[in-house]
Nucleic acid binder design. Structure first.
Lengths: 468, 468
DNA sequence: GGGTATTTGTCCGTATGTATG
DNA sequence: TCATACATACGGACAAATACC
């Protein structure tokens, strides 16, 4: 930041000269960067334009700057070459690159959580954004909105969730937030119970467990069996809060059967407990009708429902929601009244209109179909190339499969071997709360990012990597 | 008796699924009962066996049936008679309307915090959004990015803040977040000190005080004099954390002079205290030279700097940043590693490019000029119509003025009288930590939303409302 | 794509204070 | 004391490049 002192004995233009020169020498002003125009700087510093000009002139004279009439002063290369014609870049090309990551080249990526670019409805999003920006509704985004999120979006969500997931709630109970982690943060901040304990599935999504752990919670791992979370272990624990993924357990893919859901709700009712239902990938079911959510069969307000737009739109969107039972609303008001919603209003309104116009459901169907195709192809390829060497978990839903290696191969080795064939697969270790519970003989194949056509080749490479 | 309709739009297996499910739920099929075999039912209904099988599979998946190879499907125990309907009802058409607000019609609004629609660079934003959505960079937003925010944006911000506010930091110290409230939440979560006390200016921005109060902090009010926060009162308090708005105190508009800044930093150094510098409207200065930020003259890492894009872009954008001193970074990692950034990646990238191409500074200059015009007109009108009846505070910067009524008129009456003339002005009461410190003889006129041309008429109406 | 408004460096003249002779 | 030269600072007019519509 340039600072001048008009009272100083040193002339103003020299003060400017020295500061800019120093910034160039220490690298704050990099080569090619356009510096503030004489007029703008003069106004900012409340001095005459020519004062700035003489400072700049001196810098040009000494080779620190290059001047181009009507288009500004630009920082020169320091090891300047006199006979080289100084071409001006139309726009300053700032080298904006992330810190070096010694990346291995990857041909096929089974990264979980990422999506392929064509999964995003870019045309639609563009259209709706453009419409909003061009219309008089632009005014809507120019003020602070409702703390829980745009009302129209919450109404749309309520309707959508009611008929797609059976979720029963008022718009009032829905709070928009920037991702499922934020959703959990909100819930934790409400401090529903004195004791800081939470039961979680073992294994479970680490993005969720991190939030509880970072908030000083003791996490009680409850094993996941072939039919979901072990109720006996759960009920014998002292937890009064459980985080579960009933529709499609992460990462095993198990679906919680209806009788266990009911038992779970009964237990919650008797113990005044809270069931946190994380319905993170409810949009993706490839067989049969969706199973009604826990929330939809809860009659006692024991369920906190969490959903997200990340999985079928974009992980970068940062839009999710939490639905609180009514008895928690006063606690919410107490803790968060006066807080502004963290989701950009523009995106909320765009989203509300997409849903209202039916595009959301249409998009979901389309994207679900596309992923089902990938799912089927992947499954077929896996069966063909490694059918008798692995168990495949988590079929019929979601965006990933989990492979269990019958011969006990170790995860770290498997990942390494895959990388040697330039294929990325994901470890399961991060999802285990207690490392000892895991035999380390599984990997995850996320198929959100990879293209349909690449799958057979990728699986072939994997088979070569692991079984040759 | 099962009945199917092959002509129906609904798949046959779903029809079967639903009827059996309904029979189980309403008790027609009791626990333990063996149901018709797939072969038998297929023959009965004149359909393929696989169709029946997929219906049964779905029922097994959801726990209604148990399948035992070579011995048939058996109805499961539900432990519970669901006499409630679990059926998913059809979508209901909800009218999308906000909850009733008995709104008075308003002709001119001096609402603080809102902006007029033309303050938003819609064309530019649209162009950059479209470019991003159309390009191959779309892939970038399809995965979870850096937890602190997009790296390129943080680099751009670092450079911008260095030369516009003198802020000295690495990109590493910058964390993007969804507004200044989120910024404070992050800081609070780091628990820099054991004692939960914070000193705040009296009066101060309530959006900030709410966050501290909601987190159980004791707030120590420190009076604001004509030259800013009272240092004697501050240093005699037990606080080790202070929230301040040095550039343009909210809401009084006082600028903290340089010697007090240095004293403040010295005090912080001696007491290991943290100064939270909220530079919320640094872009708006209409007179005089910009004063360097506290952060820029801090040599001991005592300053936490908070900035936002809300004031000169859009309040609905939800983009702000907090700059932590280096010694707090380990605490940040400890608390937030594994957390995802809450700001949508798309907007982060758009913003980064806007800054890189110089549009951000240009926009700021333009918007600053536009607001200066409004500021001057408003000031002139106020002088003309009520010059001798009010003191005008907070000139020369920001997006609002504060009027102090010399004859002691009461805020609530003033607001009411203004509303009768269909003009909205804002109270100052919410910004006082302790109501007794406030004589209730002030109102705030925010001029972010009102148009230049409307100002004289609006002021005329106000004069009529208050002094006729 | 072509016309218009804005931004920008450039050049000009001027004012003021100070040192020189 | 006066005239001159010089350094410094300021603002208006102009043309070209750029942005905007």
């Amino acid at each position: 930041m340039l600072q001048i002192n008009p009272a100083s004995a040193q002339p103003i233009y020299q003060q400017i000269y020295e500061q800019i020169r120093a910034d160039i020498l220490n690298g704050s002003l990099v080569e090619g960067k356009r510096i503030t125009s004489t007029r703008a700087l003069a106004k900012e510093l409340q001095i005459g334009r020519n004062t700035v000009e003489s400072a700049y002139a001196q810098l040009v004279l000494e080779g620190y700057l290059t001047n181009q009439p009507s288009s500004g002063y630009v920082v020169n290369s320091l090891q300047f070459n006199l006979n080289q014609r100084v071409e001006l870049p139309r726009r300053q090309q700032n080298a904006v690159t992330a810190p070096d990551e010694d990346k291995v080249t990857i041909r096929y990526s089974f990264q979980y959580g990422s999506l392929s670019a064509n999964a995003f409805p870019d045309k639609l999003w563009r259209k709706y954004t453009n419409d909003l920006l061009g219309s008089t509704d632009l005014q809507k985004i120019q003020s602070y909105g409702d703390g829980k999120g745009d009302f129209s979006l919450r109404v749309q969500l309520k309707d959508y969730l009611y008929h797609s997931r059976g979720v029963n709630c008022e718009a009032d109970q829905i709070i928009l937030c920037s991702g499922t982690q934020s959703a959990l943060e909100i819930l934790i901040q409400l401090r529903p119970y004195e004791n800081k304990q939470v039961a979680m599935e073992e294994p479970c999504y680490n993005g969720a467990s991190i939030v509880f752990r970072s908030n000083g919670y003791e996490i009680l791992p409850v094993p996941v069996h072939h039919d979901g979370i072990c109720l006996a272990d759960l009920t014998s624990s002292s937890a009064r809060m459980v985080h579960i993924t009933p529709s499609h357990q992460f990462p095993t893919g198990v679906v919680l059967p209806i009788h266990k859901r009911i038992q779970l709700l009964n237990w919650a009712k008797e113990h005044d407990a809270i069931l946190i239902e994380d319905d993170y990938d409810s949009e993706f079911r490839y067989h049969g009708r969706p199973i009604p959510s826990l929330q939809s069969i809860d009659t006692d307000g024991r369920v906190v429902y969490i959903g997200t737009f990340s999985k079928s739109l974009s992980p970068g969107l940062r839009m999710a929601y939490i639905i609180l039972p009514k008895w928690l609303l006063p606690k919410y008001e107490e803790r968060f009244s006066g807080y502004q919603c963290t989701v950009p209003l523009m995106e909320q309104i765009v989203m509300a209109r997409l849903i209202a116009d039916g595009h959301w459901e249409k998009h979901n169907r389309k994207i679900c179909l596309a992923h089902k195709k990938k799912h089927d192809i992947l499954l077929q390829a896996l069966e063909a190339y490694m059918g008798n060497r692995v168990n495949i978990h988590g079929q019929q839903a979601g965006l990933h499969l989990m492979l269990e290696f019958l011969e006990g191969q170790q995860e770290s080795v498997l990942i390494e071997q895959a990388l040697e064939q330039q294929v990325k697969v994901c470890p399961v270790s991060p999802f285990w709360l207690n490392a000892q519970n895991y035999k380390k003989n599984c990997v995850i194949l996320g198929y959100g990012m990879i293209s349909e056509n690449d799958i057979p080749n990728a699986v072939k490479l994997l088979a070569r990597a692991w079984f040759d």
